[in-house]
C-alpha cells in the first residue's frame, strides 16, 4: 500500500477520533444550560469533561496538522475556502477554551452565566460548522483548475449543508447526553438529561434520514457499496443506541452511539476516496490523494512518526479516562 493511501486512512482515523471525543464534549457544552438553571448543577455537568476536553480538542488540531503535512494542497484550499466559517469557529473555540478556565474563578452568578453562554456558543457553533464543512466537501465546491476556491462565504451554505450542520449538532447533543449518563451520579440530573437526550436523539434520527436522502441526491458517495453499507450501519447502530437509551441508558447505548459516529465518518471517507475535496466545476479539478499530497519522502517520515506516536497518545489518554472513571458528585466540584 502506498503512503498516500496510508495517510488517507490516518486522516480518517484522526477525524473519527475527533468526532467521537469532541462529539461528547460539544454535546455536554450544548446541553449544560438546558439541564439545569442552578450553577452547582452546571458545574457538575461541565466537570465531567473538565480534565479531558483539552486533550480531546488536540485531535482536531492534529487532524489539521496531519492534513498540512500529508496533503498540503487540501490544507491550503480547505482552510482558505472556509475562511469566514473558520473565523467563526475560532472565535467560538477561543471563547469555549477560556471559559472553562475562567468560569470557576469568580463566584458572582452573572460572571458564571456569561462563561456558560460562552461554552454553549463554543460548543454548538463548531459542531454546526463542521457539519456544514464536511457536507460541502462531499457535495463539491467551485474549486478552479489551480485548486483555488472561486466562490464566497454564501456558497458554503445550502439546504443540504445546513442539514449537515443540524445533523452534527443533534447527534453530538445526543452523544453528550449519552456520555453524561455514564459520568454523573445525581439521579434527578440523569433523568433530566435522559429526557433531553431522547429528544435530541429522535430529532437526530429524523435529520439523519433526511440527510441520507439529500446525500443521495447531491453527491456520489452512496454509489460506492461500502460507503452505502457504512451509512446504513450508522442508522442501525444509532437506532439501537437510541432504543437502549430510552429504556436504560448506560454503557451499551454509549458504545453503540459511538459506533454510529465512527461508521458515518468511515462511510464519508470511503465514499470520498481517493478525493478529499470535490470540485463542482470539473471532476479533474478535485483534490485527491495523488494531486494534493506531500512527497513520498515526507510521507514516509510522517508515517513512522504516526505509527510510533499515536499508540502512545492513545495509551495515556485512555489512562486519563481510567483515573477519572468515577462518577462525578458534588464533593468533586466543591474543593476545586
Amino acid at each position: 500500500m502506498d503512503y498516500q493511501v496510508i495517510w488517507f486512512i490516518l486522516i480518517t482515523v484522526l477525524f473519527t477520533g475527533f468526532f467521537f471525543l469532541e462529539g461528547f464534549d460539544y454535546g455536554v457544552g450544548m446541553l449544560a444550560p438546558f439541564v439545569s438553571k442552578r450553577e452547582e448543577d452546571r458545574s457538575l455537568i461541565l466537570r465531567t469533561i473538565g480534565p479531558v476536553w483539552d486533550g480531546n480538542e488536540v485531535w482536531m488540531i492534529t487532524a489539521g496538522g496531519a492534513l498540512f503535512a500529508a496533503f498540503p494542497h487540501v490544507y491550503a484550499t480547505m482552510f482558505s475556502t472556509f475562511y469566514m466559517a473558520l473565523f467563526l469557529m475560532l472565535v467560538a473555540l477561543i471563547l469555549r477554551g477560556v471559559a472553562f478556565e475562567l468560569r470557576t474563578k469568580e463566584k458572582c452568578p452573572c460572571w458564571q452565566k456569561l462563561w456558560d453562554a460562552a461554552i454553549f456558543i463554543g460548543s454548538i457553533v463548531p459542531a454546526f460548522l463542521w457539519g456544514v464543512a464536511v457536507t460541502d466537501l462531499a457535495a463539491g465546491l467551485p474549486i478552479g483548475e489551480n485548486m483555488v476556491y472561486q466562490g464566497n462565504f454564501l456558497n458554503l451554505l445550502s439546504p443540504y449543508s445546513i442539514c449537515g450542520g443540524m445533523v452534527f449538532v443533534l447527534v453530538f447533543a445526543y452523544h453528550g447526553a449519552s456520555f453524561l449518563q455514564l459520568r454523573l451520579a445525581d439521579k434527578g440530573l440523569l433523568y433530566r438529561i435522559q429526557d433531553l437526550g431522547k429528544c435530541a436523539g429522535s430529532l437526530a434520527a429524523i435529520a439523519y434520514v433526511l440527510y441520507l436522502i439529500l446525500t443521495w441526491q447531491n453527491t456520489d458517495l452512496l454509489a460506492r457499496p461500502c460507503a452505502m453499507g457504512l451509512f446504513i450501519a450508522t442508522a442501525v447502530f444509532f437506532l439501537l443506541s437510541l432504543f437502549l437509551f430510552m429504556k436504560t441508558p448506560g454503557k451499551y447505548s454509549f458504545v453503540l452511539g459511538s459506533l454510529a459516529i465512527a461508521s458515518v465518518t468511515l462511510g464519508f471517507f470511503a465514499g470520498m476516496f481517493p478525493r478529499l475535496m470535490v470540485s463542482s466545476l470539473s471532476p479533474d479539478w478535485s483534490l485527491t490523494i495523488t494531486n494534493a499530497s506531500s512527497t513520498e519522502y515526507t510521507l514516509s517520515i510522517m508515517t513512522v512518526a504516526a505509527f510510533v506516536l499515536v499508540p502512545v497518545v492513545l495509551v495515556y489518554q485512555i489512562w486519563t479516562y481510567y483515573i477519572f472513571r468515577k462518577r462525578i458528585t458534588t464533593s468533586d466540584v466543591s474543593h476545586y
Binding site: G65, A69, P72, A76
Partner: peptide, 25 residues
C-alpha cells in the same frame, strides 16, 4: 497558514507541515 497564506502552504507544505504535525503529536 491555510486561511490567509494558502500559497505559502502549497509551496512549503511538504516541509512546513511535518514539524507542525509532529508538534501536535
Amino acid at each position: 497558514f491555510g486561511m490567509n497564506w494558502s500559497e505559502y502552504s502549497r509551496f512549503m507544505g511538504d516541509i512546513f507541515g511535518a514539524p507542525l504535525a509532529l508538534e501536535a503529536l
